[in-house]
Design a binder for these strands. Structure first.
Length: 438
RNA sequence: CGGGGCGUAGCGCAGCCUGGUAGCGCAUCUGCUUUGGGAGCAGAGGGUCGCAGGUUCAAAUCCUGCCGCCCCGACCA
């Protein structure tokens, strides 16, 4: 992309409304624009990041055996009356009436819709396990939206729903999601820890929240240090084998956010294993059994010929929130530092002297080579001063900066800078391209 | 939803107390100079002062109501 033909409205000053660093940087870097409280438009750069996060989530869901669908944003109130949640949900649900006076709502989640789909088609235990997910906009009319897209009213969520014939099978489905989530966060360059969450009325131990560590996180997290260092299981585990050991290696170690914290258990650990940190909740998984299948009549016929209510779980990732959370976890004074997996562009080419034949030629050559290699470069070909280009490129956080100035061109070299470390080297163009392309 | 605060040019703000021509910086446009960390000079454009009502000869300014937005608390991807 040539910046002269792009739309990347960066700001020198953040709007006064924005308080936390990710919100300020998202506005300054031209990722989002607020349209109303908790409602945002995604500008080109922000949209690219959002799509990349979405794709990482999608790939890991698919790998773990989930199947993507797309459910509507607008749902029928009747389904929610069936599950009994229509009245419970209260003011957080945006209720709509259409021209026929039919009651609709903007979906805050999709248990009812997915259960309705499931019960319409799936009748046999032989079709299980099944896990259906979608990545769709949700609306929750929060009392107090804040912190930009971190807590918006409209937000993009990946929500997956598992269907199993019994609780043991549901646990296996749960375990798949548990480990898939760790892989998602690892690919996004985040340190994530699963903490035990309030399981609600169902009880049991199958409810976890995933907290990513960031100094500016909203909640306090207490955890066994090994849990962080253990990291993600990686893509190559046997997803339909026995995952219990991988999961219990982690769940056996202490981890809790402030509301579930058990100080006595925490203090009982060796001091050097106690870790206290700030975290941002970016995922929540839980098992809820027959909560929806029973009232909505989602049954399958079991091996014994008898119908049983299907056992369900649901698994949410805040995709749009992740964009902000990644920034909270990865930025510096100059701006955003995107992990390569979600960076809006793979590299930036900075022409420090647009109009200079040598600089133009080197930049065009670099731009073409990077484009051909699939790096998706952003070429700053604007007629602007070097300082402005450096500042803007740092701000938007592109991992590599290929800096082309007249002095270097005269000597046959360019400068290559890593955004994350600030490390620079001066080298011939070919070597710089090799370093980026690999 | 309770408490606090703010709405003046795209962004950041001053002006309001004490009513009288709507300002500053950045950004934008034109020209010249400049060119390795958000340039300089000269000029230009851009505003229903959130909305409505009231007081007044006169309202950004005073009064009333409404709307919007932000922050703190209780809840959530």
């Amino acid at each position: 992309m040539r910046l002269s033909r792009y739309f990347m409205p960066t700001l020198r000053d953040a709007p006064a409304d924005a308080q936390i660093v990710s919100h300020r940087l998202m506005l300054r870097a031209g990722l989002i624009r607020q349209e109303a409280a908790g409602i945002y438009a995604w500008l080109p750069l922000g949209l690219k990041v959002l799509k990349k996060i979405e794709q990482v989530v999608r790939e890991e869901m698919d790998r773990a055996g989930a199947v993507e669908i797309l459910m509507p944003t607008i749902q029928l109130a009747d389904l929610w009356k069936e599950s009994g949640r229509y009245d419970d949900y209260g003011d957080e649900m945006l209720r709509i009436t259409d021209r026929h006076e039919r009651e609709l709502l903007f979906g805050p989640t999709a248990e009812e819709v997915v259960t309705d789909i499931f019960r319409s088609y799936v009748k046999s235990y032989k079709d299980l396990p099944m896990n259906l997910y979608n990545i769709q906009w949700k609306f929750r009319d929060e009392r107090r939206p804040r912190f930009g897209v971190m807590r918006g009213r409209e937000f993009l969520m990946k929500d997956a729903y598992s269907f199993d014939v019994d609780e043991a099978a549901a646990r296996r489905s749960y375990n798949r999601m548990f480990l898939a989530y760790l892989n998602v966060y690892a690919r996004l360059g985040l340190k994530a820890i699963p903490v035990k969450a309030d399981p609600g009325p169902i009880g049991g131990d199958m409810s976890h929240e995933f907290m990513i560590l960031a100094e500016t996180g909203e909640s306090e997290v207490f955890a066994h240090r090994d849990l962080v260092e253990m990291g993600a299981p990686g893509p190559d585990i046997d997803w339909f084998g026995d995952l219990e050991p991988e999961v219990s290696r982690r769940t056996s170690l202490y981890a809790a956010s402030d509301e579930m914290h058990d100080a006595a258990r925490f203090e009982a650990m060796a001091p050097d294993k106690r870790m206290t940190a700030r975290g941002i909740e970016v995922g929540h998984i839980f098992y809820f059994g027959e909560k929806y299948s029973a009232p909505m009549g989602a049954k399958v016929t079991g091996p014994d010929g008898k119908d049983v209510n299907v056992q369900m779980g649901s698994y949410g990732v805040g995709v749009s929130r992740l964009a902000a959370a990644i920034i909270e976890a990865s930025h510096d004074d100059a701006g955003i530092v995107w992990p390569a997996s979600v960076a809006p562009f793979g590299a930036a080419v900075l022409n420090l002297r647009v109009g200079d034949a040598g600089c133009d030629a080197v930049c065009e050559q670099a731009y073409k080579a990077l484009s051909d290699a699939g790096i998706d470069p952003l070429y700053d070909d604007r007629d602007d001063r070097p300082g402005a280009k450096f500042a803007a490129t740092d701000l938007v956080g592109i991992p590599w900066q290929l800096i082309v100035g007249p002095k270097g061109v005269a000597e046959g070299v360019v400068e290559l800078k890593r955004r994350a470390t600030g490390e620079r080297q001066t080298l011939p163009l070919d070597a710089a391209l090799t370093a980026i392309i690999g």
